[in-house]
Amino acid sequence: MSSAGKASEQATTEKVRHEWPLYEVFVRSKRGLNHVHVGSLHAADDEMALRHARDLYTRRNEGVSIWVVKAEHIAASSPDEKDPFFAPSADKVYRHPTFYDIPENVPHM
């Protein structure tokens, strides 16, 4: 192959790689449960992503429903625990039922 041919092939590979975006995959393992993130894959479009997700993540009845979403469309918080992002949830103990004292003789509470 000429060097020009090689270069154009490489350029095509680059382009294709770019055009097969990364999808994150979520599977509902059975009715009544939430979809859970299971991993990711590359696909040219949404339909192919669903088919690939079926082949890759549900070969043994692991799912009854699949969501795929382009990774670039996911907005994520920083997972770092030190991040003050989650601090507001730590200082409101009155949100928990155990915050309230109820006499023992009050039933069903």
């Binding site: 294709v16 055009e19 696909a43 040219a44 479009d45 192919m48």
Partner: peptide, 16 residues
């Protein structure tokens, strides 16, 4: 397999 990857990308582009 390169042509398959290219064809799928071209199809997706066309649909889009």
């Amino acid at each position: 397999g390169a042509w398959v990857r290219e064809a799928a990308a071209a199809y997706a582009r066309k649909q889009r």
